[in-house]
Simulated scan of single mutants.
Amino acid sequence: MESQSIMKIRNISMTYHTLDGEIETLKNIDLDVNKGDIITIVGPSGCGKSTLLSIIAGLVNPSKGEVFINDKKVNGTNKDIGYMFQRDHLFEWRTIMGNVLIGLEIQDKVTDEKKKFAEKLLDTYGLEDFKNNYPNQLSGGMRQRVALIRTLAIEPEILLLDEPFSALDYQTRLAIADEIGTILKKEGKTALMVTHDIAEAMSV
């Protein structure tokens, strides 16, 4: 069982030091995630959900504990992990295709094969006709789909989703959460999402 886990979180604790003293954000968190799992963590704002994702992504060092991806300890950023933030962070001056390719450009992995894969994702999820458009020409839900496709284009093993629908209105949020859950399952991705909204968690 232990060896089947693609991600292992072991005894993670996080304490922040402030002028008023220490604030314990996370305490003794343990979690195993198997390949293909889509797990949602629900909790109120400020309870440490985003901190946990940042630790998993290697962006923040925990006060205590370790994270393992494919049995290798996380020590800094990891190309096997894709991170989808609360806002889509699309560059308004770049086309949709240009935005989708950003992650590949950063990793210096833009090839004809990778471009074809990105175009296939856009086509599969209803955005092929918009690849030469700009973000301000898209609805909020479509922008979030682009943000997900940008993350999928680098072909990560694990996706971390940090309240990715919070900027949308409630009805759109539930619809796009359901849609993105379907995409993650279809692509066979392993994902860990955090949210403060129970209905949103159930939609994925």
Rank of each mutant, 00 (worst) to 15 (best):
G82L: 01
D108L: 05
T151N: 06
I183A: 03
Y83R: 04
A199K: 15
I176M: 13
L52Q: 07
D32V: 12
T190E: 04
K64R: 13
I176G: 01
A201H: 13
R150P: 01
E163N: 08
A153Q: 05
K27V: 11
L192M: 13
S5N: 15
T95G: 07
D108Q: 13
A118V: 09
F85Q: 10
T182L: 03
E157R: 13
G140W: 02
N28R: 12
N75E: 11
G58V: 07
R145T: 03
S203Y: 07
E119Q: 08
L138Y: 03
E157D: 11
L121D: 01
G141A: 03
T111K: 06
K64C: 12
E128R: 00
Q4P: 04
D197T: 05
T95K: 05
G181A: 05
E92K: 15
A191K: 01
M14P: 02
A199L: 13
N75T: 09
M7P: 09
L159S: 01
G58Y: 10
I198G: 07
G82A: 08
C47L: 06
N99C: 07
L122D: 01
I38Q: 10
V33M: 05
E155Q: 12
G103S: 04
V67T: 06
T51P: 15
C47S: 08
I55E: 01
D108Y: 09
T195H: 04
P135C: 07
I12H: 07
M14Q: 13
Y134N: 00
Y16F: 15
K64P: 03
H89E: 09
K73P: 08
L184E: 01
L184C: 01
T124V: 02
L59D: 06
E157C: 06
G98F: 07
L104D: 02
G126F: 05
V74R: 06
Q137W: 07
S45L: 09
S63I: 09
E24W: 05
L122Q: 01
I9T: 14
G141N: 02
Q137C: 07
V110H: 09
G103H: 02
Q4K: 12
M142N: 04
A153L: 08
Q4F: 12
K27G: 02
I39H: 05
E105M: 10
R173M: 06
D169K: 13
S166H: 12
V42L: 06
V67A: 06
E163W: 06
G98E: 10
K185G: 03
V42F: 08
V100R: 00
H17F: 07
I149C: 03
D32E: 14
I56T: 06
R87T: 09
Q171P: 12
Y83I: 10
E128S: 00
T51L: 11
N28W: 15
N136R: 08
N70H: 10
V74W: 13
I180P: 00
G48T: 01
D123A: 04
E113F: 06
N34V: 14
E128M: 00
K72H: 14
I198S: 10
D20Y: 12
D20H: 13
I149P: 00
K185L: 08
I149D: 00
T182Q: 11
Q4T: 10
T25P: 05
T195K: 04
D20C: 04
